[in-house]
Design a protein around this nucleic acid. Structure first.
Lengths: 120, 120
DNA sequence: TATGGTACTAACAAAAAAGTAACTAATGGC
DNA sequence: GCCATTAGTTACTTTTTTGTTAGTACCATA
């Protein structure tokens, strides 16, 4: 998400793992709050503080980091209005909207998996 | 993946994040090597060293950890044969196979996303 | 002049995940 | 007795990720 060492095994492994489209995709969605943010933005465009209020425990730093990463990956668009106090709006891109149905299936699977694990 | 502190914000946040079936699911698949392992096991059951050879840079420790986590989450089955030297086989569960088509879509999306980001 | 609101940033600390290296048990073959 | 083999384990270090706290700019309003 931010500056990485270039020659750690961690990074070398990542390079070859990210080669796979699937792990690449999961990596892009893997930040702690990213999917939750995408889920909120699915319904409407929102301002920074609006998003923040949705998640009681997220820190401003984390929210900023996740939003920046999503923006960099072309999943959200950030629009700054030249007002005081500042107003910044976030909304999903087409690419992010396409993810919707896939995530729905994954979510359903998650529910199923969760209950099947609980049973044993 | 192993013993967590109970009262860190990290853990408190996780509790509420995991409440969502989607983030729960991604969490289960989020280990560095998990999806790659599942992908290999999709084709055939494999022994520990066989899997290891598929990934030049994975350490035995990491492979063990990821396999154990997958087993615990009901995604793979581990069968130990009482032989010397030991033989252990890993194979997917039904639950894991159901994931196949979803991951395929996610992978396609990943490919698309990757090329769209590269362009800019 | 002081205060408040928005959307952050910087410096730092804590926690988790991933990686390294050395070691283990059991037994068959030399 | 010594070595090789398989599937690990253990203790430790490194790297990344997440969280904490305090502070910023801008102007409007009290």
């Amino acid at each position: 998400m931010a500056g990485r060492k270039q020659n750690s095994t961690y990074t070398r492994n990542e390079v070859c793992i990210i080669d796979c489209d699937l792990t690449y995709a999961v990596h892009k969605l893997g930040g702690r709050w990213k999917l939750l943010i995408l889920d909120k933005l699915c319904k409407k465009k929102m301002r920074f503080n609006e998003i923040k209020k949705e998640f009681s425990y997220i820190s401003e730093r984390m929210l900023t980091l996740q939003l920046r990463a999503l923006e960099e990956d072309g999943l959200i668009i950030r629009t700054v209005f030249a007002e005081v106090p500042p107003r910044v709006e976030y909304e999903l891109t087409e690419m992010a909207f396409e993810l919707g149905p896939i995530l729905k299936q994954l979510s359903d699977w998650g529910g199923k998996q969760r209950s099947s694990v609980k049973k044993d």
